[in-house]
């Protein structure tokens, strides 16, 4: 498998927001290491700072303390080098563009607007053939998510950041997209960080699952996931899989200090 992409080293990061006169400390002492070509999942209670952490790694925001390093480059340098792809929970497509021109937007922004082959490859990869000319309003929620993922991939970034990209979807579509995500990642080997609310999803797709504490968020548990790849849906039924899910859920439970339900659709 062609491993490509940048390793990510986050050390002692803190971020505090001003909020209506008061302050909200979103992250404190947040550490994370993702090897080059690795696939990490970030999980934690709502409001614990997952999105904040991802935005910091994407160079969309700056930490108040701590360092983020990617093979010698800062997030801002990575961003300016256009080496990052992001997809958020809200697919954030341009409503006035079609599926293919939405994907092409990323290419236009990195100065490769004529790379039509890349666009059609990605459309095929995410299974949207025949919908090239459709506009976002004419797509289902899952299709829109796939467009957003295709857009984040089309520039062949060295780092892929996914913030609950499947958050609003039903369990079945979600499982399909997890399979696709795994396939794409296996094919491209891009360093990937996935934020999710779903423990089974994290265990299913990632190399390592990081569990965060409630706000101020930091990583309190690491779970290496070494199931064979490609992982298939049969895996979901195995005892080993359930044991992992239990283990992660136990960490989350301890971190939250409250009972956590195990359903996949707990978002």
């Amino acid at each position: 498998m062609a491993r490509r992409g940048a390793p990510v080293d986050v050390v002692g990061v803190g971020r505090t927001f001003a909020l209506g006169g008061g302050e909200v400390e979103a992250l404190r002492g947040f550490d994370m290491h993702v090897p080059a070509g690795g696939f990490n999942a970030l999980i934690g209670p709502s409001g614990c700072g997952k999105s904040t952490a991802l935005r910091l790694v994407a160079g969309l925001d700056v930490p108040d303390e701590g360092t983020i390093d990617m093979d010698g480059a800062s997030p801002d340098q990575m961003r300016r080098g256009r080496r990052i792809g992001v997809a958020f929970q809200d697919p954030s497509l341009l409503p006035w563009r079609t599926v293919s021109t939405n994907i092409r937007l990323a290419l236009e922004l990195v100065g490769r607007r004529h790379d039509t082959a890349a666009v059609s490859d990605l459309i095929e990869l995410v299974g949207l053939q025949g919908f090239e000319k459709a506009r976002p309003a004419q797509l289902s929620g899952g299709m829109r998510q796939r467009v957003a993922i295709a857009r984040s991939l089309v520039t062949e970034p060295d780092l892929l950041l996914l913030d609950e990209p499947f958050g609003a979807l039903d369990a079945l579509t979600r499982q399909q997209l997890n399979d696709e995500l795994q396939r794409i990642w296996t094919a491209r080997g891009t360093t990937t960080i996935l934020v999710t609310h779903s423990i089974p999803e994290a265990v299913y797709v990632a190399d390592e699952v990081l569990v965060m504490s409630p706000r101020p968020g930091r990583v309190v548990a690491h779970h290496a996931i070494d199931f064979e790849r490609p992982r298939t849906r049969e895996l979901l039924l195995t005892d080993e899989f359930h044991a992992k899910v239990e283990a992660v859920s136990g960490s989350l439970h301890r971190s939250e200090g409250q009972v956590v339900r195990l359903e996949a659709d707990d978002s």
Partner: peptide
């Protein structure tokens, strides 16, 4: 979100 996507490039 749209502005963030643009900024990320």
């Amino acid at each position: 979100g749209i502005l963030d996507v643009l900024k990320s490039y």
